[in-house]
Amino acid sequence: MARHEEGLRWAKLAQALTVSLGEADTVRGTWVLNILGLIYLDKGQLDEAEEVMEQILAIVSEELGADELEMAGPLNNRGNLHYRRDRLEDARACYQRALELFERILGPEHPDVALALGNLARLALDRGDLDGAERLGLRALAIREESNGPESLEASHAQQDLGNIYRARGESAKALELLERAAVGAAKALGAEHPEVGYALLSLGELHLQRGDLDKAARFYSRALGIFQTSRGPDHLDVAPAVVGLGEVALGRNRPNEAVRQFERALELYAANERPRDAAWARFALARARWTRKASQAEARALARAAAEELTALGAAADRAEIDAWLAGK
Rank of each mutant, 00 (worst) to 15 (best):
P108I: 09
L69G: 08
I39M: 09
I227C: 01
V52K: 01
A66H: 00
P111L: 06
N273S: 12
G132N: 08
G170S: 12
H110M: 02
N76R: 03
W326K: 10
A186C: 15
L38S: 11
G185T: 10
L69P: 03
N257S: 08
D112A: 09
S20E: 14
A173D: 15
L286Q: 10
G198Q: 01
G118S: 12
L251K: 07
R211Q: 15
D25A: 11
V52N: 01
W291P: 05
D131S: 07
G170H: 10
G37M: 05
L202I: 05
L138R: 15
E154M: 11
L33T: 10
F284A: 06
S231V: 06
H82Y: 15
I56D: 00
V19G: 09
E151H: 15
K294M: 07
A24T: 02
V249T: 05
A186L: 06
P241K: 00
R135L: 11
L311G: 02
L237V: 13
A308M: 03
V60W: 01
L36A: 03
A325S: 12
V19D: 05
L207D: 03
E310C: 01
E6A: 13
L314Y: 01
R283A: 05
A298H: 10
A24K: 05
L13V: 09
R85M: 14
E299I: 10
D161M: 13
E264I: 00
L178M: 09
A2F: 09
G137T: 03
H82E: 03
E48M: 12
M53H: 13
D47E: 14
A116S: 15
E268F: 04
N148R: 15
A114G: 06
D238V: 08
V244W: 01
L115R: 10
I105C: 06
D86F: 08
Y270G: 01
A142K: 11
A173T: 13
G170R: 12
N76C: 02
A295Y: 04
G149T: 06
R219K: 12
D86P: 01
T30S: 06
R219C: 09
D278M: 00
R127E: 13
R84L: 08
L311C: 04
R211H: 05
L138T: 14
E68Q: 11
K12N: 14
R275H: 06
A218W: 02
G22H: 09
G22N: 04
Q229G: 11
S156W: 01
A182S: 14
A313H: 04
G315K: 02
E6K: 13
R97Y: 12
D25K: 11
E248M: 11
L57H: 09
